[in-house]
């Protein structure tokens, strides 16, 4: 087996080793950092990223991309916290999810039916969502902002003081995504559409339905991520999730999901999200400034995209 073939087949293993290496570096650099508590916190911080990256994974697999996820997550969080007091927790959560679904559907209509380039479409809807959010925030100035207790527990509480409650949400969703991609007709079609739309059409698949559903699911997952995030920070602000946009795409790409579609999976994305979270905490430990992190993210995406392009040629 050539090295290229090995890397292609076992990219997840290589990535997991890199992750272990990072953790190893942390224990060497700051002995005593890696404790059960640290692990629990790392997992907790990885949840919103992992959820948003899940949506991006679905879209990348199908040959798309969504640049509006950060605005959607912030929006869902803000809608939730500003409506929790008058509407109650359940309705406020549903409102946030509905907003995510709506933007996702709009993206889907543009991309799947009007055949707009995904990048431009989601840039536009992201702008719309962010702007609408700012306007909304000024309309309701003075209204009480409240993060409901249940959401705060979800985002920051730990079961028995050790296992974050957010994992009880993430694990089933992750399982659903992994199994769904492998064992459901819809999952099968996501890969197929991303690999070759023309072949899908020839086989009688109505491609637009698949894309529409994928964009809707991505919007919904971004909203869920926003809700977990607002539980962690315990206060919604208008740019709450903005820093997650690039890492969400990066996590999927690092995890081996092809930017050209048709190859990858959510398992890799989870490792990618954990990798980025641990990298982040290492850089924080080393007091690396924010811009360096940002450049590192950009560099990692570029290097891996180039590497995957060469491996699969």
């Amino acid at each position: 087996m050539t090295l290229a073939a090995f890397l292609r087949e076992r990219s997840l293993l290589v990535l997991a080793l890199l992750l272990a290496l990072l953790v190893g570096i942390i224990t060497v650099v700051r002995p005593g950092t890696v404790t059960p508590d640290w692990i629990a916190n790392t997992l907790l911080f990885a949840v919103p990223l992992g959820l948003m990256a899940g949506g991006e994974t679905l879209l990348l697999l199908a040959g798309g991309i969504d640049l509006s996820v950060a605005s959607v997550a912030s929006g869902a969080a803000y809608l939730l916290s500003s409506n929790a007091a008058p509407l109650g927790t359940t309705l406020a959560v549903l409102l946030g999810l509905a907003a995510g679904l709506l933007v996702g559907l709009l993206n889907g209509v543009g991309v799947a039916i009007f055949r707009v380039q995904p990048l431009v479409m989601t840039l536009g809807t992201g702008l719309m969502a962010q702007g609408a959010l700012v306007v909304y925030s000024q309309k309701i100035i003075g209204q009480e902002q409240l993060v409901p207790r249940a959401v705060a527990t979800l985002g920051s509480g730990k079961f028995a003081g050790l296992v974050p409650y957010a994992l009880f949400l993430w694990l089933p969703l992750a399982l659903l995504l992994i199994l769904g991609l492998r064992r459901s007709g819809f999952g099968r079609l996501l890969y197929a559409v991303g690999d070759n739309e023309a072949a899908c059409r020839l086989s009688g698949v109505r491609v637009w339905r698949v894309l529409l559903a994928a964009y809707a699911a991505c919007g919904l997952l971004a909203a869920v991520a926003g809700i977990v995030l607002v539980g962690t920070t315990n206060a919604a602000d208008l740019s709450l999730a903005n820093v997650y946009l690039l890492p969400a795409i990066a996590a999927a790409i690092i995890g081996g999901t092809s930017i050209f579609g048709g190859r990858g999976g959510y398992g890799g994305t989870i490792v990618g999200a954990l990798f980025l979270t641990v990298l982040d905490s290492l850089l924080t430990l080393l007091n690396a400034p924010e811009p360096v992190k940002q450049m590192l993210y950009g560099g990692v995406i570029l290097a891996l995209a180039a590497a995957y392009t060469r491996l699969t040629d």
Binding site: L246, I259, E290, P291, Q294, M295, L296, G298, I301, A305
Partner: peptide, 23 residues
């Protein structure tokens, strides 16, 4: 040189240049 599509390269480059601006 990389044959990676324009979108990906310039998206990543955007973050790198942005980081440089912050530095």
């Amino acid at each position: 040189a990389s044959r990676v599509p324009d979108v990906v390269v310039t998206l990543a480059a955007g973050f790198i240049w942005g980081g440089i601006a912050l530095l």
